[in-house]
Amino acid sequence: MNTVYKSEAGASELRWRYREALDAWPVPAEHIRVPTREGETFVVASGPQDAPPLLLLHGSGANATAWQGDVASWSRHFRTYAVDLIGEPGGSAPARPPLASDSHARWLDEVLDGLGIASAPVVAVSLGGWVALDYAIRRPRRVTRLSLLCPGGVGRQKMSVLVTTLLLRPFGRWGARRSVCAVVGLKAPEARPILDQVVLTFKHFRPRTERLPVFPDDALRGLRMPVQVTVGGRDAMFDSAATARRVRECVPDARVNVLPDAGHALFGQTDSVLAFLRD
């Protein structure tokens, strides 16, 4: 049995839901499988093949469908590559190499090489933001721009969310939905489809328990590419105030946006990110 899932039946259900979601991808897409040392990596490519590349990295407990609301806009200007992170509930291998190593950078090297990409801008969220930052720090020549949404590895990772989730677990589906609302900062009536999908995913999926390493100031100061960071003021996962402060101090030319009423899940950023990418 695949250890990132709680059961093979649950894994099958999530795979079926993922295929269904990919069938509803808003623009024509190509599905690419790239062999790497960590196993096969699944990528959804959209946009003109001769357009400049754009790499998309989703967050924990997600997959390429996290970008369905953005890809129609971005793929008019870029060849977008929505990469399923390894060890997450998508189409990539279940491998979870240690975060406190260069394993993810070496994995992304192979993904980019397999796609024929020498360098590209990267848009990433949460765990994907950590992976993108790690890669930009280790491989600065391969990242031309960096747009991060609620990235990990900068501000303190909060543990209160875990406590809330554990306290609500005995209350079944109601408790699961309440815990998701606490994490992403959304109310059920306004985002029922998203909430239902997240609840279903974590019913069957085992999330990572490894804390995200925090990047030291010197590493952040070494970022030379244009950087955009957007955080939610009510982020329950990371200390967004500290994220904004450290980025402003260590990357003086970075564009830092704090959305005071937003939580960890940020919506409506398509145009802002696109403007940064095309600047």
Rank of each mutant, 00 (worst) to 15 (best):
D261Y: 06
Q228M: 15
T209P: 01
D109Y: 07
A265T: 04
L85K: 09
L99E: 09
G128H: 08
L55H: 01
P53V: 01
E40F: 01
L167V: 12
A62I: 02
K6V: 06
R37H: 09
L200T: 03
P52M: 05
R96Y: 10
L266E: 00
A93C: 10
L266F: 00
G153A: 12
V231S: 01
V227G: 00
G59Q: 10
P189D: 06
D239G: 09
W107G: 02
R177I: 13
G155V: 02
F238Q: 07
F202G: 02
R19E: 14
L112I: 04
V34H: 02
L55T: 02
D50F: 07
D235W: 03
A244S: 11
F238Y: 13
R224A: 14
G172P: 09
W174S: 14
S7F: 05
T209V: 13
W174D: 10
E249A: 15
D70K: 03
G61A: 08
D70N: 11
T270A: 15
A242K: 05
H31K: 09
P97Q: 08
A66E: 10
G172L: 09
W74V: 00
A62S: 15
D253P: 01
G91N: 10
V199R: 07
H204C: 01
G268M: 05
G172H: 15
H104N: 14
Q197K: 15
L57I: 09
V4M: 13
S92Y: 07
S92C: 12
G185A: 09
L162N: 14
R76G: 01
L277E: 05
I117D: 06
A95K: 13
D261L: 11
R278C: 12
K6W: 03
E88W: 03
G10W: 08
V256A: 07
D84H: 03
M225R: 11
E8L: 13
R141F: 04
A120D: 05
P252S: 10
V131A: 07
S126E: 09
V122A: 03
W16H: 14
G87P: 02
A120T: 03
P97H: 07
P89N: 05
P189Q: 04
A124I: 10
W67C: 08
R221H: 12
T36N: 04
G232V: 01
G155Q: 08
E8P: 05
W174V: 15
S12K: 15
M159C: 00
A265D: 07
T164P: 02
R178H: 11
R255W: 12
